[in-house]
Amino acid sequence: MHESATDPMVPRVLRVRSRRRDGPQVWTLELDAGAREQPGFAAGQFNMLAAFGVGEVPISFSGDPARPQRIVHTIRAVGAVSSALTRLGAGAALAVRGPFGTGWPMSEAAGRDVVLVAGGLGLAPLRPALYQLLAERARYGRITLLYGTRSPKEILFRREIDSWRKLTGVMIEVTVDHALQPWHGHVGVVTALISRARFDPGRTLALICGPEIMMRFAAEALGTAGVASEAIYLSLERSMKCGIGSCGHCQFGGLFICRDGPVIRYDRLREPLRVREL
């Protein structure tokens, strides 16, 4: 254990403090760091989480960067590893490496309007950025969260969203692809919300996280609205095995998404995102 600080491939053992269901197949785990001090993390960074004997996957932090002892991850059960992780109950041990990767450019947000565009589970990696923005609300202009997801029952962090809506200078718009139950919110793609949102494109910073197709359309829609590519950041997802740019799996053109990303400025992504199967 004592050498793990020098070897990023060796995890530390943490335990699940609590587990909460946040949607169909989606669970939020809060980990217990015990007495040991945990490394701080930046909004947008990720940990490698492993279920012992099953495997390891990259999962973004979804908690508050101001409270690094409280490690929170929101996980969707899609594969063997993520399913095993979401089955861990309070007290269960898991192996954690990280934090890894680049964070959202929070220092660039000061004095600007900030537009966060989230798609599906992409709200989870944006939540730390939102916590940080809301903690120092006065430092920023208008804050807008545009969140698109599949259907009303898949909306993450509902109670928090309702509390954020009540804050002044904060606009939250949620849209779903289709709605069955009684639903009075928006139905339609998240890009449609961009034209309805109020922000000054010349002094706006945009943070986007969601499925790659949605991010491509959202970034283009922001561009059409007048936001420069240099002011738009995307959080990309690729297969990550090591987290430190040495296993080769997450390459995207010349980038290692685990090390040069996951948060990358759109002007570096615009061309490569057009290449199929890159």
Binding site: A50, F52, K241, G248, H249
Partner: peptide, 9 residues
């Protein structure tokens, strides 16, 4: 140099 990892028990 590419590698992957396997967990086993």
């Amino acid at each position: 140099f590419c590698t992957t990892v396997e967990d086993s028990s």
